[in-house]
Amino acid sequence: MRARHLLIGGRVQGVGYRDWMVREAGRLGLSGWVRNRPDGQVEAVVAGPEPAVEALLTLLRRGPRLARVDSIEETFWEEEVPPGFFRR
């Protein structure tokens, strides 16, 4: 189980993307956090069983109804991830 650091670009701020992501990650039993960045991207760290992380990544590419996801940059996260999933 490795954590992932994500930078999500597109129309992802002001459309409920973070709240939607918190609900979906919680439903999948994942840990991590999500926050808006000043450059308009959403940043997140996601940790959990690989099938659940992959399921979330599939959902993140579509996003909620009002969002438009143009890109997701993904790298591995080496720092510890606390349990639960929350907004920062």
Results as ranks from 00 to 15, higher is better:
Arg4Lys: 14
Arg4Gly: 00
Leu6Asp: 10
Leu7Gln: 14
Gly10Val: 07
Val12Glu: 11
Val15Met: 07
Val15Cys: 07
Gly16Ala: 10
Gly16Ser: 10
Tyr17Val: 07
Tyr17Trp: 14
Tyr17Ser: 08
Asp19Thr: 13
Asp19His: 15
Trp20Ile: 05
Val22His: 03
Arg23Gly: 06
Glu24Thr: 04
Ala25Met: 07
Gly26Thr: 15
Leu28Met: 06
Gly29Gln: 10
Gly29Leu: 09
Gly29Asn: 12
Ser31Trp: 08
Val34Tyr: 03
Val34His: 04
Asn36Trp: 08
Asn36Asp: 08
Asp39Glu: 12
Gly40Asn: 03
Val42Phe: 10
Val42Glu: 06
Glu43Gln: 14
Glu43Leu: 02
Glu43Gly: 04
Ala44Phe: 04
Val45Trp: 07
Val46His: 03
Pro51Trp: 01
Pro51Glu: 12
Val53Cys: 02
Val53Gly: 02
Ala55Arg: 09
Leu56Val: 02
Thr58Asn: 02
Leu59Trp: 02
Leu59Phe: 00
Leu60Ile: 01
Arg61Ala: 15
Arg62Thr: 12
Arg65Gly: 00
Leu66Cys: 00
Asp70Arg: 14
Ser71His: 11
Ile72Lys: 03
Thr75Asp: 13
Thr75Lys: 11
Phe76Pro: 01
Phe76Gln: 13
Trp77Val: 02
Glu78Cys: 01
Glu78His: 14
Val81Asp: 09
Pro83His: 10
Pro83Asp: 13
Gly84Val: 12
Gly84Met: 13
Phe85Ile: 05
Phe86Leu: 11
Phe86Asp: 12
